[in-house]
Computed example of a mutant assay.
Amino acid sequence: MIKLLVIGNLGKDAVVNNVNGKTVINFNVAHTEKYKDAQGTQKERTTWVECAYWTDRTGIAPYLKKGTQVYVEGNPEVRTYTTTDGRQGAALSLRILNVQLLGSRAGDGSDGNSANSYSQPSAAPAYNVSPATATADMGDADDLPF
């Protein structure tokens, strides 16, 4: 399995669609990287990721607005295509497993301190640690470096 993690800003408001009886939230995320070229000139490169979040938990959709910073993780897919003028192109899309709101642009009416997280149920086992076990594994609390 390949997993892709992206932190970026939404390029437009999310759209909730119904496809064959299943709900999907579609949105795109842009990540801009700043770098210097061989001549030392400051450059920017923006990568756009099309996201599809297949879930019945659509409560997050109203918060996925243009400019909102998000953390998304999921399985990547690359789609190749030919443009009308004959050039080859590629698009990166992501089937979302987890999305977390990180904040929003200043001045949009939000407080910018959103910490909501939504994720698909995972098949991974859940481990419960009792307080007694956790304390026994820590050793003597006086040995902590802080």
Rank of each mutant, 00 (worst) to 15 (best):
Y63S: 07
Q69F: 02
Y71T: 03
N116P: 00
I7V: 15
T82C: 09
T135N: 10
G139E: 07
N128C: 04
L97S: 12
N75V: 14
W54I: 02
A123S: 15
P125G: 08
G139I: 11
T41C: 00
Y35D: 03
P131T: 04
S117F: 04
L92T: 04
N128F: 13
V29M: 05
L97R: 11
T84G: 12
A61N: 03
G89N: 13
S117C: 13
K22P: 00
D143W: 07
D143N: 14
K43L: 10
L101C: 12
P121A: 13
R45V: 08
V19R: 09
S110H: 12
L92F: 09
I60C: 07
P131W: 04
G107W: 10
I96A: 01
V24R: 04
Y118L: 11
N17T: 06
E73I: 05
E33G: 01
P121H: 11
T83L: 13
K36M: 10
T133I: 08
V16E: 11
K12T: 04
K36D: 08
N113W: 14
V19G: 07
A123Q: 14
Q42C: 01
C51Y: 03
M1W: 03
I96F: 03
V6T: 09
V70L: 11
A136M: 09
E77S: 13
K34V: 06
N9Q: 07
G107T: 13
